[in-house]
Design a protein around this nucleic acid. Sequence first.
DNA 1: GTGAAAGCGCTAACAT
DNA 2: ATGTTAGCGCTTTCAC
Lengths: 332, 332
Amino acid sequence: MYTIKDVAKKAGVSIATVSRVLNKKDRVKEETRQKVLSVINELNYVTNFSAKALRRNCTDVIGVIVPEISNSFYGEIIKGIENKANEYDLRLIVCNGEGNLDKERGFAKFLYDQSIAGMIFIIPCMPDSELVEMKNNQKPIVLFGRNMQKYNIPSITVDNKLGAYKAVSHLCAYGYKKVAFISGEEAEHLYDRKERFEGYIEALRDCGHEVKPEYLVTAPAETINTVFAQLMAVTNPPDAVFCAYDELALGVIKTAQQMGINIPGDIGLVGFDDLRICQYTSPTLTTVKQPTYIIGSLCCEKLVYSIRQPQEGQNVNLLIPPDLIIRQSCGC
Amino acid sequence: MYTIKDVAKKAGVSIATVSRVLNKKDRVKEETRQKVLSVINELNYVTNFSAKALRRNCTDVIGVIVPEISNSFYGEIIKGIENKANEYDLRLIVCNGEGNLDKERGFAKFLYDQSIAGMIFIIPCMPDSELVEMKNNQKPIVLFGRNMQKYNIPSITVDNKLGAYKAVSHLCAYGYKKVAFISGEEAEHLYDRKERFEGYIEALRDCGHEVKPEYLVTAPAETINTVFAQLMAVTNPPDAVFCAYDELALGVIKTAQQMGINIPGDIGLVGFDDLRICQYTSPTLTTVKQPTYIIGSLCCEKLVYSIRQPQEGQNVNLLIPPDLIIRQSCGC
DNA sequence: GTGAAAGCGCTAACAT
DNA sequence: ATGTTAGCGCTTTCAC
C-alpha cells in the first residue's frame, strides 16, 4: 500500500504537489501533473480515506436511515440513492431504523459522530425539533416524506393528497358510491396517512358523496382480517375500499378471498405505493405509484447539492405528483 | 467535539491512560478507570473513528456485496447481517453488485482499499481464483452461496440439492408423474441452479420416473411466458413444474392464468426461495424456504469470528438444510 | 500502573 | 508553481 510520500519521491516532487493533483484544486503545471498521474497509476496508489477524513474532519460517506431495509419499497429507494452516490464517489451506509425512534436517534448520532458528509432520512419518526437540531449540527440532511420547508431543510415528498384524490375519484367515476377508507395505525410522524385521508375526503366531497364514519377504519396491518370483516358487516356495507397502503390492500385481498368476497365483482379495491407484489396478486392491484428509484436518486442529488454548496436558497421541497396505476382490483 | 486530550486533562491523567481504559486491554487501576470513565461520560466523548482507523490501519466497518438490494430476499439477509453487526459495534456498507462482475470487483477493491475490517459476499459472481486472492489480502471474507472449503474460506450454503429433492419428491409422492424443471439462465457462478437441478434428477430417479429432456427448460425470467407456453405444447406435456427460483414460478403463475391453465388443478407448481410474495399469489406458492435473516446473521457471526480470531481451523462451511413450505400451488 | 512521545497519511497555511 | 511543515486524534512502544 503506497502513500503520497512514495508517489512524491518517485515522481521527484513534494507531497504537497501530489496532494494538489489529487484534489484538483490548486493549479499544477501540466507536465508535473502528468508525471505524478503516471506514477500514481504505476504504483496503483489509492488515497487513504481515514487519513483524509481525519485531516478534513469529514468523510466521503453519506448515511441513510430507512424504516425497513427488507421491504423492497425502501430497497428501491436505497438503490436509487446508492447509484447516484457512486456517481459522485460517495459511499453509503444504510441504517435500518425500523420506525423506532430510539434506533433512529442512535443511528443518527452514530453517523454524526463519524463525521459523515450528510444524511438522508426516509420517512423519519423523529420529531421536527430533533431534525432541526440535526440540521443545525452543520451536516446537510435531506428528508423524504416530511416537508420542513419552513426550517429550510431540503426534502422530497409525494403529493399524497393528490394521489389519494386520483384513486378515489377514479372509483367514483366508475360508479362506486360507497368508498371506505382503511388506514394503518395512526402515528404522529405518518404524514402520508393523514394526507391520503384528506385526498379521500376531498374526492368524495367533489363527487357529491358523503363521508360516513362507519366507512373509516384505522387498524394495524396485522388485524386487517377482523377489521375488514367488521367493515363488511355494517348495515349498508361499502362497495369499494381505498387502502392508505398497499400492505393493507394485500391483507384485504387475502381476507376477501377467505370470506368468498369477489374483488372487483363484489367490491372495488385500490391501494397506494405500488409495491412490486401488486402485479402478482389475484386480482392484480390498482394502486397509486410512488416512483421509488427516482425518489432515492433525487434525495441523493439534493444531498450532494447541499454538501457542495452549503448555502441556503435552493428550491427546498420537491413535490412529486404520483400516478394511478390501473389494474384489475378496481374493476375499471 | 472532545478528544482524548480533553478527557485526559480533565481527568488529570495522560492520553495514554485514557486510551487504555477505552480499549480495555492493558490494565488500569480501578480508581483511575472510574475517574476517566466519568469524565468521558460527562463530556459525552466519542472516539474519532477516522483517527483510530488511520492509526490501526483498520476500520470498524464491514462490507457486503449483494446481487440486488431492491430484492427483499437480499434485503432480509442484509437485515440479518446488520443487526448482528450492530451487536458487535461494527458498521455495515452495503454494495449493490447487480450480478455484474465488474461492479463486484470495483466494490471489493474499493472496500479493500478502505481498510475494511472484512467483507461478506452474497452469491458472488467472481471466479474462485479472485476470491482466493481477496482472502490472501489478509482481510477476512465470508461467502454465502459458494463453498470454498478447500481454500479455507468460511462460507454458508443452503443444501440446494436436498431442497430440490424435497420439493420434487413431494410432488411425486402426491402422484405427479411428469415433473418439468424450469431454471433461469445458466451462469458459471450460479451453483444453486446446478445443485437444484441435481436434486430434481435424483428425486425423479428415486421415484422411478425418467428424466425427459423436453421437460428441461433453461430461460431467463423475462421470457417465461413464451417458454412456459412451449413447455405446455409438447406432446404429452408435464403435469407439474418445479422452478429453480420463485421468481420463475411467479412468471408461471401469471402465464398460466393468461392461458387459462389452472394451478394446481391442471398442473402442480413448486418454487424455491420463499420470497415474501409467495404468500400473496393466487394460488399461494409452495416453495423451498431459505432462512434469509438467519443466513445474514450467521454470515456476520462467522465474519466477526474471523476478524477476532484470524487463525484457520474453524468449521469452514456451514450447510443449511432448507424446509419445504407447503401451500396451494402443488395441490398437496 | 502510568506518562512521554513518535507517527499513521493526509491537507492546508505559509513560504519561496 | 511548488516545497516545507504543522497537526488532525489516536495507538503503541518505551521509559519510569
